[in-house]
Design a protein around this nucleic acid. Sequence first.
DNA 1: AATGTGCAGTAACATTTGTCACATACGAGA
DNA 2: TCTCGTATGTGACAAATGTTACTGCACATT
Lengths: 211, 211
Amino acid sequence: MQNSIQKLFPNFSSELISDIEKNASEQDFKAGTILMRTGQYIKNTILVTKGKIKIYREGEDGGEFLMYYLQPGQACAISMICATKSEKSQIMAKVVEDVSVMMIPLNLMDKWMMEHKSWYEFVIETYKNRFEEILEVVDSIAFRSMDERLEFYLKRHSDACGCTEVKLSHQEIATELNTSREVISRLLKKMEQRGLVKLNRNQIELLKINS
Amino acid sequence: MQNSIQKLFPNFSSELISDIEKNASEQDFKAGTILMRTGQYIKNTILVTKGKIKIYREGEDGGEFLMYYLQPGQACAISMICATKSEKSQIMAKVVEDVSVMMIPLNLMDKWMMEHKSWYEFVIETYKNRFEEILEVVDSIAFRSMDERLEFYLKRHSDACGCTEVKLSHQEIATELNTSREVISRLLKKMEQRGLVKLNRNQIELLKINS
DNA sequence: AATGTGCAGTAACATTTGTCACATACGAGA
DNA sequence: TCTCGTATGTGACAAATGTTACTGCACATT
């Protein structure tokens, strides 16, 4: 376990790592599990060591508007902040690929911020990155039309998984962009005609989106 | 000056306040001044003691999508985050009502985080609040149509200024919601018919939005 | 092979939002 | 009072997006 933490979080000091080992509990969750719901109290901060978690905002109509993904070596920025006052969560977190996480009791957050410089820097860095990511998301919905948002979405997806195949149904994409399947089908078709993607069953191959 | 800091930031310890007095420079800016541009390097953190600053995201077409307002007793969350690594700003900050601000050199950020518990708590609290505010903004554009967004916008505005009159032209509102004046006029008219607002020249009076 | 089920394609239409053109209203000076 | 500039109202139309309703396809199960 120590090795994996050191590998995934290379900036953590060895004192911090041993503190994590002493206090955190490692847990596994299956794909589909909802780790956090809007309105629920947050009791832990999460460090991801394996798998993928989707952080999203739930609409009244059941839309699951994607904010960002949590992957190995990352932490939930929102839980870190809210944790400091054991606030209610404002977002939903759902496991999309079986995960292993380190659960860190929230009362250690403040303590470690003071004691471990490397923890402090990690938290600030995490926060900054997520803030910027959300700003980009805001841009994309505020200023762009659906076809551009779809391209942006596919690009983020392939960036996140490091591959050029996106294994999602049109319906799933539609849900995450809060639109309907038909619209996504239409737009993907157009993108295929423009030579940007290749459509297969349950899989979209990105060709030129890497710009 | 000391009095006003103490009043506006009641949770600051007296040591922190005296540190602020020693190191921060107080500056005034006229309405219309742009304090920060996208892509510009951030050199200071800002505490607002008077006036109002608009934090927004600029679109390619000149749209000024409102993120939130900074008011007395508040600080720029983004500058605090980015400051820690002297990063580039991702947002625009424009003075909308003549302001007085305390400019705090960024190198003190990290130092004070460690030394002053009340500063640490203030920073975390600020992040948290802004993050939540932006999540609400995301909700409003992701899930709501223009008429609901307009109501949300007016409500935020009156919350921010603590009054029921919004002194903005339709054009200004349109810019901040990234739509056109005609659309705003239309929707406001409908809202007036529903008895939600009363329209006057350069001023919108909110009647029932306080729900 | 027959069937069921989920995914994708598509046409037709409704609704929302954006754009253009122009009319009108109001207030500040000359 | 007249006039000019800015703010607002409004109809007509265009474009984007959402909705409905149906078709066909691929795969798994029987």
